[in-house]
Simulated assay, not measured.
Amino acid sequence: MADVTGHKQTLPADVKVERCGDVERSAYQNFVASHPHATAYHNIAWLDAVEQAYGHPCWVVTAWRGHRLVAVLPVCQLRRIGGGSLVSLPFCDLAGPLYETAEGESALKAGVRTLLSELGASTLEVRRRGPALCEQDIAELEQLKSNRKVSMVAFLPESSERLFASYKPKLRSQIRKAEKNGLTAEVITGASGIDAFYPVFAANMRRLGSPVHGREWFDALKTAYDDRLLVGIVRLENEVVGAGIVLVQGKTACIPWASTLAEYNHLAPNMLLYWTLLSYLTDSGCRQFDFGRSSFGEGTYRFKKQWGAEPVALDWQKWQPDGSVLQSPATEPGLLAKKLRSWIETCWRMMPLQLANRLGPKLRKHISL
């Protein structure tokens, strides 16, 4: 069996299941940094933030060959009334196992069986990226407006000038329109970025009818990721009207959260926000940008595609105690679930913002997506 570099490998002999605070961090971080499929969510900083902000316990399953790390899997247990569920990882679209060979994945599954047994858990939800979609598949799914969830990923050129030139005239004019409307934008690397981001984000989540992450979650992320967490800010004069958070892992980046104030959307702050972040990342050496999860029938899918993003399958699975794997396709909820969600969202929108911001984090910490 050959690894991703073409070298011959043998079955990893040593599997460890450790709390994230006990793992050999330098080995883990170096493995993630060198792996072609690693995301910013694989960084140990994500686990640190989950434990610090919300108190959910996190583990790392690792496989070793002697002193060399050959496979890793970050895991979190969301503590809930009546028990807890295991997921890799909560509050994001992707994480899952990283390994050099198929034997490495088998070793990780053995470690997961041990962890499930120790915790008395019934399954581990694994969120991983699936195979590339061919042009014919994409065209058919777009035509059907499929509710299948995909990750929208764009590849970035060598400079922001080439990136801007690659856009269609309509997109370029929308970016310029935002600037002509008096909006300005910048990328902040310091902690003050969270101060600017959070009020816009919290207001937008209440408008969407969704419980908001607590401020402590973003403070914990900033502490854990440090300068690998960037905040894009859009202002009209001195008022922040749009903001987004980007996490950087090597030459890849992702945007887990972005929000604008609805009363200013006619000025196109979202267009300037994304352009400012994308141009900054491109000139900083990033070559891949993950716009996050969408389904083919959503407006967000079309919004992301205009920036050059293409759909990549999401392969979500459930790993069982007996070693079997069940497919758990990432799709939109069914009709009944949608109706229930719509009713909850309507009630949440009617809640005073201060109350929503106080209650939201108490609920949000238990919602895995």
Score class of each variant (00 low, 15 high):
Met1Thr: 09
Asp3Leu: 06
Lys8Ser: 12
Gln9Gly: 03
Ala13Gly: 11
Ala13His: 11
Val15His: 08
Lys16Asn: 07
Arg19Tyr: 00
Gly21Lys: 09
Val23Tyr: 05
Glu24Gln: 04
Ala27Asn: 11
Ala27Pro: 09
Asn30Gly: 14
Phe31Gln: 04
Ala33Thr: 05
Thr39Asn: 08
Ala45Gln: 07
Ala49Asn: 09
Val50Ser: 04
Glu51Asn: 01
Gly55Asp: 08
Pro57Ile: 01
Ala63Glu: 03
Trp64Cys: 11
Gly66Phe: 06
His67Tyr: 09
Arg68Pro: 02
Ala71Lys: 02
Leu73Met: 08
Cys76Tyr: 02
Cys76His: 00
Cys76Gln: 04
Ser85Glu: 06
Val87Arg: 12
Val87Thr: 14
Pro90His: 12
Leu94Trp: 08
Leu94Phe: 14
Pro97Phe: 12
Leu98Val: 10
Thr101Phe: 00
Gly104Asn: 12
Gly104Pro: 04
Lys109Asn: 06
Arg113Met: 11
Arg113Ala: 05
Ser117Gln: 15
Ser117Val: 06
Glu118Cys: 10
Gly120Lys: 08
Leu124His: 03
Glu125His: 15
Arg127Asn: 13
Arg128Thr: 12
Ala132Cys: 09
Cys134Tyr: 02
Glu140Leu: 11
Leu141Glu: 08
Arg148Tyr: 11
Val150Ala: 14
Glu158Met: 10
Ser159Tyr: 06
Glu161Trp: 03
Ser166Trp: 07
Lys168Ala: 04
Pro169Ser: 11
Lys177Gly: 02
Lys180Cys: 08
Gly190Arg: 08
Ala191Glu: 13
Asp195Ser: 09
Ala196Asn: 11
Ala202Tyr: 10
Gly209His: 07
Val212Phe: 11
Gly214Asp: 00
Glu216His: 13
Phe218Glu: 08
Asp219Ser: 14
Leu221Lys: 00
Thr223Asn: 09
Asp227Ser: 13
Asp227Thr: 14
Leu229Asp: 06
Leu230Arg: 15
Ile233Ser: 03
Leu236Ala: 06
Glu237Phe: 02
Glu237Gly: 01
Gly242Val: 00
Val246Arg: 00
Val248Gln: 00
Val248His: 01
Val248Tyr: 00
Gln249Tyr: 01
Lys251Val: 12
Ala253Val: 13
Pro256Arg: 06
Ala258Glu: 02
Thr260Ser: 15
Thr260Leu: 09
Leu261Val: 14
Ala262Trp: 08
Ala268Trp: 03
Leu273Ala: 07
Leu281Ser: 15
Thr282Asp: 06
Asp283Phe: 01
Arg287Trp: 05
Phe291Leu: 09
Gly299Thr: 01
Gly299Leu: 05
Thr300Ala: 03
Arg302His: 09
Phe303Ala: 14
Gln306Ser: 00
Trp307Pro: 10
Ala309Leu: 01
Asp315Trp: 08
Gln317Ile: 07
Gly323Gln: 02
Ala330His: 01
Ala330Trp: 00
Gly334Tyr: 15
Leu336Ser: 14
Lys338Pro: 00
Leu340Gln: 10
Arg341Thr: 15
Ser342Gln: 07
Ile344Met: 14
Thr346Val: 10
Cys347Val: 12
Arg349Ser: 13
Pro352Ile: 11
Leu355Phe: 10
Ser368Leu: 08
